[in-house]
Design a protein around this nucleic acid. Structure first.
Length: 199
DNA sequence: AGGATGATCGTCT
DNA sequence: GACGATCATCCTC
């Protein structure tokens, strides 16, 4: 597949719109071990002023990327074991972002298999921590501009129509009922409940 | 300096 | 469905 980098301006700045727009886009990771790519099939919006958003309690060293300009990477470690990758949203100064929860593996599957402890394609990138492990994403990429960086960036999808559904976000305790999780209907690579309302 | 917390994952029943 | 691993980060003393 020919990869066409997303140009500045095509992605929304609004958090919920960004979460939907990222579905179908191709996530590209260039690493000295090789390239991995995948189609984004599941995201979650963490809004400005949202109690479930890491930025809710104010700016800290860890979450600073959420407060930066839109479309920067926010990468953090959760439970001491897994990294999570987000794309910041909203104008600079506002703390918000979109968690990328799952991608459909495309290129570099052998590399993903070697980084993860499985050969099952379906399990390689299903879940935010697994996705980061398969793609070699860690805190060294925190703060990069995913529209300009060479190491981790976004490309246009193939344009195939994708039905978007939504439902409650996963794994949180606050504001847990808001339907801010978005995913591709019918995809086998989605990490959570897959039969929910139309978005 | 110490304690609580967590947007997860793999394993087990 | 439940549970424990594991640790950077943040807050409070």
């Amino acid at each position: 597949m020919r990869l066409r980098r997303l140009r500045p301006g095509v992605l929304p700045v609004d958090t919920a719109e960004l979460a939907r727009a990222l579905l179908g886009c191709i996530l590209v990771r260039e690493h000295e071990q090789g390239r991995t790519t995948g189609r984004i099939v599941e995201t979650e919006a963490y809004l400005s002023g949202d109690p479930a958003c890491h930025a809710y309690a104010g700016r800290t060293r860890r979450n600073a990327s959420l407060f930066g300009p839109p479309h920067r990477a926010y990468v953090y470690l959760i439970y001491g074991t897994a990294f999570c990758f987000n794309v910041s949203s909203e104008p600079e100064g506002e703390g918000a972002g979109v968690l990328v929860r799952a991608v459909e593996p495309l290129e570099g599957i052998a590399l993903m298999q070697s980084r993860r402890a499985t050969t099952l394609t379906r399990e390689l990138c299903r879940g935010p921590g697994r996705l980061c492990e398969a793609f070699g994403i860690d805190r060294s990429l925190d703060g990069i501009d995913v529209l300009r960086d060479e190491r981790l960036w976004l490309a246009h999808g193939d344009g195939a129509g994708m039905e978007v559904r939504c439902g409650p976000r996963i794994g949180i305790t606050r504001a847990a009922t808001r339907p801010l999780r978005f995913f591709a209907a019918g995809s086998a690579y989605v990490s959570g409940p897959a039969r929910l309302n139309k978005a």
